[in-house]
């Protein structure tokens, strides 16, 4: 007898989401995320990526189907406990302007009435992990930080309660390319250190290739492809090829991968 496959950390089962006016944003999505893996959701704006992400921590509830977390329907769990067990990182970061970084990072612990000393210790530990030296940054306010530093703090906050799941909605989308690269490298090493199940919404194919174990391509609320990064690059599926080529064309400096153009032809 073979052992049954492990229960996925996140399992979307026939998840649909419709707006009150009937517009369907998610159309019977079925998708499993294994524990400790990173899945990138790619797709155009309006393809339903963010909507899908938000059904996990129940900022939205599916109008049909269900989201199972380690086999348990998200709806059957206590909403507050569920959200505290899921880290959430967004492009706008959402650091609270009236709190220092230390307090921002440890806010979930504060909400759980963890003793102050423990909160501070944890906040400093995480600030260090994301490359913000606590001596310098713990007492600063968000307005005193650069965009990249804010995003680092946002990530530290998401990790504060050591959640098994991390939801990231275009976390590095608003950063300049160099900062973004640094953040992606840091993210990769953090993911190797802390085993998390990550759902990453992004527009950036390179980011997906660099960070993800699986890449899911979404269009009009449906899954078009669910592939490993290698498969994704080699896929003959027209929609996937179109996506890959859109990125390769944006990189004319790399002749090895750029598609031939008419100008280049003799």
């Amino acid at each position: 007898m073979t052992t049954p496959p492990p229960t996925p950390a996140i399992h979307f089962r026939n998840v649909s989401f419709a707006l009150a006016n009937g517009q369907l944003l998610l159309d019977r999505i079925s998708l499993s995320l294994d524990e400790g893996t990173t899945t990138a959701i790619l797709g155009r704006s309006g393809s339903g990526k963010t909507t899908l992400l938000r059904t996990v921590n129940r900022l939205l509830d599916p109008t049909n189907g269900e989201v199972l977390l380690s086999g348990v329907n998200a709806r059957d769990r206590n909403l507050i406990a569920l959200r505290r067990s899921i880290g959430y990182v967004i492009q706008e970061v959402g650091l609270f302007p009236h709190f220092t970084l230390e307090r921002n990072v440890a806010l979930v612990l504060e909400a759980e009435s963890t003793p102050l000393a423990q909160r501070i210790r944890r906040a400093h530990e995480l600030l260090t992990a994301v490359g913000l030296a606590p001596d310098t940054f713990a007492g600063r306010f968000p307005r005193q930080l650069s965009g990249g530093q804010r995003q680092r703090a946002g990530l530290a906050r998401a990790l504060a309660a050591d959640p098994p799941i991390l939801l990231m909605d275009e976390p590095f989308g608003a950063l300049d390319p160099l900062t973004r690269l640094e953040m992606q490298q840091m993210m990769r090493s953090l993911l190797q250190r802390f085993r998390k199940t990550v759902l990453l919404v992004t527009h950036d194919l390179d980011e997906a290739l660099y960070l993800a174990d699986r890449i899911v391509l979404l269009d009009s609320g449906r899954i078009l492809a669910n592939l490993t990064p290698q498969e994704f690059l080699r896929s003959a599926q027209p929609e996937v090829r179109a996506y890959v080529q859109a990125f390769r064309r944006a990189l004319p400096a790399d002749p090895a991968t750029a598609p031939p153009t008419q100008e280049a032809a003799p």
Binding site: G94, F96, L107
Partner: peptide
């Protein structure tokens, strides 16, 4: 209040009173 702050407060699992 910036809606992204409100959303993050919900997503972090703050109770309504918090």
């Amino acid at each position: 209040i910036d809606p992204s702050l409100v959303e993050v407060a919900r997503a972090l699992g703050l109770t309504s009173r918090q």
